[in-house]
């Protein structure tokens, strides 16, 4: 189990590095599944009783319980994908995420340990590419993730996608 120091020396602790590297890899694999449109895989990055929210910086500051999307459990994630594929009408597009290094969430004061859950933050920027090639910067923000070890490997138990802007262009149908 890594130790957590006040003077950053834990950054050199291989046990700590192993945890951060694993968390970063999970974050990268999950956005890779979204960007490659492997949507059937997307929900498998989450625990069955996960919580997934897309919200905004403003909503967090104001303490609003409602953001842009709220899924309680992996079944709702799958329902989102099904609705996207079979119900919703929109112009075809895909995303490309640019993600930052993954860091321990501020305020973490316990040695990180996947058995009890590790909370990490990762910044992202997302471009949206329409079928005709029109590319726009769709949004920036950060993932606020709680990652846990399960018999099936590491999973997101909580993911809050915090968008920097409260302004959304047109619609969100592809998850972040």
């Amino acid at each position: 189990m890594p130790i957590l120091s006040k003077d950053n020396t834990h950054l050199l602790d291989p046990a700590f590095q192993q945890i951060i590297t694993a968390a970063a890899a999970l974050v990268a694999d999950c956005v890779g599944a979204v960007d490659d449109e492997r949507f059937d895989e997307w929900s498998t990055f989450f625990t069955d009783d996960c919580r997934y929210d897309i919200t905004t910086r403003e909503a967090r500051l104001k303490g609003w319980p409602i953001g842009l999307m709220h899924c309680a459990g992996a079944a709702m994630l799958r329902d989102r994908i099904m609705s996207m594929r079979h119900a919703n009408i929109f112009e075809a597009h895909h995303y490309r995420h640019m993600v930052s290094a993954t860091r321990l969430a501020p305020g973490t004061n316990r040695a990180p340990d996947f058995a009890s859950g590790v909370r990490v933050h990762t910044n992202f920027g997302v471009t949206r590419i329409m079928a005709n090639g029109d590319t726009t910067f769709f949004g920036s923000g950060f993932f606020d993730d709680l990652i846990v070890a399960t018999p099936g490997g590491l999973r997101f138990h909580e993911r809050t996608v915090v968008l920097d802007s409260s302004q959304v262009d047109t619609l969100i149908v592809v998850p972040f």
């Binding site: 319980p65 709220h70 929109f90 619609l171």
Partner: peptide, 20 residues
């Protein structure tokens, strides 16, 4: 109300079509 908020807004399962 929180669960039903999924129906409306830019990411609303019901209403996202209205944005486009």
């Amino acid at each position: 109300r929180i669960l039903q908020s999924n129906l409306v807004g830019p990411a609303g399962l019901v209403s996202l079509e209205d944005g486009v």
